[in-house]
Design a protein around this nucleic acid. Structure first.
Length: 193
DNA sequence: AAGTAATGCAACCGCCGAATG
DNA sequence: ACATTCGGCGGTTGCATTACT
């Protein structure tokens, strides 16, 4: 059993947990400005921080980096996240890589707190982006049109309906839409894994 | 105004793969 | 070939804030 590379519970040098103070932020910024993003495991001690390397890296990557955009997501960013999630699933770092100035944590949080709920309200399964048949036909048609707008051409040919029985023995039908490689190319995202 | 529930988000946890000895 | 270390990732937690009763 390999010991964790950063174990806050066991490492006596790590006294600080939770929210970062301004002083800690400043120490980290100063150190990285001076030395660059070097070895994270030795950085805390060198910078005089009572944190683990992982925590420092996370803080820098997600909040202190100068190239971060911060602030609310725009509609174009939201659309892009939905499209990318449909293609990539929960691979937040890849999705964030397509959004300049955004971090994986930020995208993940935005997805879980906003987009997920929004899709559910519209009758779309956020996990597989399939459209639930329980929503009225007219609304269903609007959903299909929206997906077409997202870049899926002639999606009706890819439409399948599956019956699902969940743990509570509830039966539900869901219409799913699969896209082929041409559809992905339509999105013109030049994705590389 | 006070109490409670819901929400948003920063940070932590544990796992994985790559690099290294 | 194997063990260890490290950086990176996604899932989850917990706290602060906001909305609601």
């Amino acid at each position: 059993m390999r010991k964790p590379s950063c174990d806050i519970k066991l490492d006596k040098n790590i006294k600080n947990k939770g929210v970062w103070s301004k002083q800690e932020d400043q120490k980290l910024i100063d150190y990285i400005n001076k030395h660059g993003e070097v070895c994270w495991s030795t950085l805390p001690q060198a910078a005089g921080l009572l944190r683990c390397g992982k925590s420092c890296r996370l803080r820098w990557m997600n909040y202190l980096r100068p190239d971060l955009k911060r602030g609310n997501f725009g509609e174009d960013e939201e659309d892009l996240i939905v499209k990318l999630h449909a293609l990539l699933g929960n691979r937040w770092s890849l999705i964030a890589g397509r959004l300049p100035g955004r971090t994986d944590n930020e995208v993940k949080n935005f997805w879980n707190s906003h987009i997920r709920k929004k899709l559910i309200r519209k009758g779309i399964d956020p996990n597989n982006h399939s459209v639930n048949h329980k929503i009225p036909p007219l609304q269903n048609q609007i959903m299909f049109n929206s997906l077409k707008y997202f870049g899926l051409k002639d999606i009706s040919k890819n439409q399948t309906t599956k019956t699902h029985v969940d743990n509570d023995d509830k039966v539900s039908n869901a219409t799913s839409i699969e896209c082929d490689n041409d559809d992905i190319l339509d999105l013109n995202l030049e994705l590389s894994l």
